[in-house]
Design a protein around this nucleic acid. Structure first.
Lengths: 266, 266
DNA sequence: CGTACACTTGAGTGGCCTCAATACCTGTGG
DNA sequence: CCACAGGTATTGAGGCCACTCAAGTGTACG
């Protein structure tokens, strides 16, 4: 039952990404699935490198990623760029930057992508009409905050080698969670420059580090294909603990009768 | 009406911190204030340097800070420490680390502090009973995520000088928002070592940078007192934009009849 | 078949680190 | 009232990690 790849009306597989993701926090009723489907009804296609959000402009929607990968980033005055995070299918790319008066970060499509704008008022509407669903969304946003925090630790205190290893492991883990990667490999649409900008490193140095990881027999990154040849060893090297990517079900915290409604049906 | 420093039963001023903070997102009804007061009823006093949360242990509550300052941090295997964030009165110190199976970060009191444990089930209870309030909490959590993201940019791409400047400006701004700082100065209970660990720098280097800022006539940090002598210039130097600390009211995004309930009464 | 973009590699440099020693400060007990 | 201890701040010398600048090599695509 969990991670069922389609529902009664299997439009596009990607439309269930979010539902699948939220399932990690507790079962998602068909009512809720319908709401989610309805939230992501208006669809926008974006080509690779297409701009989606511009820092400083005001928005009234979040962007739910249905397909493809997006990046949130900031460009500093002198041109330095920091990628704040990547958004994969099931993520709300607009959060939290778009909640503010002017967007805090720009968003750009890393690959061809499909996104669904979700107006803020719709989002907040769910708090009244579907509190359970809202709670799951809340939880899901909190998990994203944890990713930020974890990356803060990485950028602040890990060496370049550790950082790159950690980054690749995180990406693999996240993609695996949504069915876009197998046990130890995945398609990775990032240039080395993007990796550098995500990790606060320079492009030439990332290149050297990748070579080093390759020569150590840990990782191969050729073309767009990432293979982590020794997940165990790399995790140890990079001090990677995937716990922050494995959310707890919230069911157990809810007052009487909340969680187990459909879990018995499995 | 906004930022009223006390309510009908003015227990301790600190108990209204959260209400005051949430006011930034929209008016907080007296119903909601009562709920908040009730949420933070059980109080725990912690002495300076006291441990509050230990990484890896499991918790079933968030910690609302009522008084004092807390820090969230991670210690790596070899002893390197990264402070992930500071929590000031009105913040939920447990989020998002405590949502996971084992806490992601440790939490320690930087000063003597008073915290109120808020059980998860209580928090989620508000989603059903007080959706408006839940929405404000959701919003507030999102703002914290923005702080993480912003610090990511700082640690990733700013020089040590810029980082320290940015950090001090952020702290001043946050403390000002809760009435713990005046226009350009505040009490700051942080050692240089903490500043270093928050910014991914070494303690000796932070010391040198502080001297540099002092000699430039920008900042004085003596004892526990921070004075920013030229906020404008320092902001320019550190590329500090306080927008990410100034949340939008969410009222305008709510469907009919939500927001302006009490704003008309002002 | 040229232009663009991504990757690779080298040489040289510097920002920030590490290690280590010294000064300071605040509270505490003799 | 002074000695002492523990934490905190300051300062120096030396070194490395990662940067910058720059050239050169694929490789995809119009």
């Amino acid at each position: 039952m969990r991670q069922k790849p389609h529902h009664d009306a299997p439009h596009r597989d990607s439309e269930t990404c979010l539902a699948r993701k939220l399932t990690a926090f507790g079962s998602v009723s068909s009512d809720e699935q319908a709401i989610l489907r309805e939230l992501s009804s208006g669809v926008r296609v974006v080509r690779r490198r297409g701009d989606i959000v511009t820092e400083g402009k005001k928005y009234r929607t979040l962007l739910l990623v249905l397909e493809g990968i997006l990046m949130r980033y900031r460009i500093l005055r002198d041109g330095r760029r920091q990628i704040v995070s990547l958004a994969v299918p099931g993520d709300f790319a607009g959060a939290p930057g778009c909640f503010f008066d002017g967007a805090l970060y720009s968003i750009k499509a890393v690959t061809d992508a499909v996104v669904a704008p979700v107006p803020f008022d719709r989002l907040f509407g769910t708090f009244e009409s579907q509190p359970r669903l809202a709670a799951k969304l809340f939880w899901s946003f909190s998990c994203e905050a944890a990713i930020y925090a974890e990356n803060l630790v990485g950028i602040g205190r890990l060496s370049a080698l550790e950082r790159v290893g950690h980054f690749l492991l995180e990406l693999l883990t996240r993609l695996r969670a949504i069915g876009l990667a197998d046990e130890c490999s995945c398609a990775i649409p990032l240039s080395q420059e993007m990796i550098a900008d995500a990790l606060g490193l320079s492009l030439p140095y990332v290149n050297r580090v990748l070579r080093q990881l390759d020569e150590g027999g840990l990782v191969t990154l050729k073309g767009q294909r990432l293979v982590i040849k020794d997940v165990e060893a790399l995790s140890a090297l990079a001090e990677f603990e995937p716990r922050y990517l494995q959310p707890q079900p919230i069911g157990e915290y809810f007052e009487n009768g909340w969680a187990p409604v459909t879990s018995a049906a499995a």
